[in-house]
């Protein structure tokens, strides 16, 4: 007779998965941490250099600006991705004709690949025939029209508008589901107490979906720190270093300069910043409504 206790055969069920996971995922991660302390060029032998890679990365003004840029990106992501999604979810939470279609339409951009989206926006940002400039000229703001991607003051923002645009539907779906779960009694109790739409939002809706909102904000920060394929495809960090982010910086160190030790240090720093920022956000914001 069998049992749900451990038996040797169970190991066979886990072995293929664990092998693939450890060899191709965990091992390169540990290797990155280890090689960040060396001056490896990817080919010849290396020597340990202690923490000197880390101090070199930190003293590079290009990397520091790149770090600053992803924090701006994170802030804009929270405001525009999560903010727009929250607003839409709040407006559309009551049943209305066409809500299902809107949900499907809003979510559509999210499942499209970054490279297809970049191609679409390449045509949209075109200096002459692009939709953006045509629109500006049509409403009489033609003086603002420009080559968005080759202008160093707009390149970074033009690129990050693409993932921001794509992710609104994603956060909408999450927040919409969260709002559907708020019991109707709460709103009715609020009506008896005489709420207006604004106080209803602030006192009932917001506290109820707060845990979901914190998850969304954490995901938005994470996305801003990691989604570098848009920058890579659209500007490759340029013009100059005007749209450089830590991940494109790392890529260039690894694959253009073969600085595997130095690049690993930049990678470890980005990993640490991501982990620290998201856990601080989670802890800090998570506590906001706990007293209720």
């Amino acid at each position: 007779m069998g049992s749900l206790k451990f038996q040797k055969r169970v190991v066979l069920f886990m072995l293929p998965c664990l092998a693939v996971y450890f060899v191709f995922f965990i091992f390169p991660f540990l290797q990155t941490a280890a090689y960040s302390l060396t001056d490896w060029d990817g080919l010849t032998s290396f020597s340990f250099v202690g923490l000197s890679n880390f101090s070199k990365v930190f003293s590079d003004v290009i990397y520091r600006q790149a770090i600053g840029r992803i924090f701006i990106w994170a802030l804009l992501s929270i405001l525009l991705k999560v903010g727009t999604a929250l607003l839409l979810a709040y407006v559309l939470r009551k049943p209305a004709r066409g809500a299902g279609f809107t949900k499907a339409a809003l979510f559509l951009p999210y499942i499209i690949s970054s490279s297809a989206m970049c191609l679409i926006f390449t045509v949209m940002y075109d200096g002459d025939a692009g939709l953006v400039n045509s629109f500006l000229r049509a409403i009489g703001l033609g003086s603002l029209a420009r080559y968005w991607l080759s202008d160093s003051s707009t390149a970074f923002f033009a690129v990050i508008m693409i993932p921001i645009y794509q992710a609104v539907g994603y956060f909408f779906v999450i927040l919409y589901a969260g709002m559907k779960d708020i019991p109707e009694d709460l709103f009715e109790a609020g009506k008896i107490d005489g709420t207006n739409p604004l106080s209803e939002f602030a006192r009932i809706t917001l506290p109820s979906i707060w845990p979901t909102l914190v998850v969304c904000i954490t995901l938005a920060i994470n996305g801003a720190f990691q989604d570098f394929d848009y920058i890579f495809i659209m500007t490759y960090g340029g013009p100059g270093h005007a749209s450089e982010v830590p991940a494109t910086y790392m890529y260039k160190e690894f694959f253009d300069h073969h600085a595997f030790g130095y690049g690993s240090a930049a990678a470890v720093i980005l990993f640490a910043i991501t982990l620290i920022s998201t856990s601080i956000t989670r802890k800090g914001l998570g506590a906001a409504f706990r007293t209720e």
Binding site: F25, Q31, T32, M250, F254, F255, S264
Partner: peptide
């Protein structure tokens, strides 16, 4: 889940 794939790109290539 907390290890972003960007972190390991160099070493995965080498592996």
């Amino acid at each position: 889940i907390f290890i972003p794939s960007t972190t390991t790109m160099g070493m995965t290539y080498k592996l």
